[in-house]
């Protein structure tokens, strides 16, 4: 059975990549209306952190075929 932690890893990984991508796009194309503390680029480092954690979970708990 696929572990619950694998599903969580996939969720964090996909969301992390999307948020990191959006953050990098905003970094290179600053929007006209910026959120407070935009200069900290939270999307970039938070998205990167989620990508790393999600990637590790997805790899560590990935479904494996049982050995015969």
């Amino acid at each position: 059975m696929v572990s619950i932690w694998f599903f969580i890893g996939i969720s964090l990984l996909v969301n992390g990549v999307l948020i990191l991508g959006a953050g990098l796009y905003e970094y290179w194309h600053p929007p006209a209306e910026q959120v407070v503390l935009y200069n900290l680029h939270a999307s970039v480092w938070w998205g990167a952190l989620m990508t790393l954690i999600g990637g590790w979970y997805s790899y560590h708990f990935k479904p494996r075929q049982k050995k015969a």
Partner: peptide, 15 residues
């Protein structure tokens, strides 16, 4: 949420 979260982060917060 709207104060600090730009595109992506806002979607995550709403999710």
């Amino acid at each position: 949420l709207a104060r600090y979260c730009g595109p992506g982060l806002l979607g995550l917060g709403i999710t």
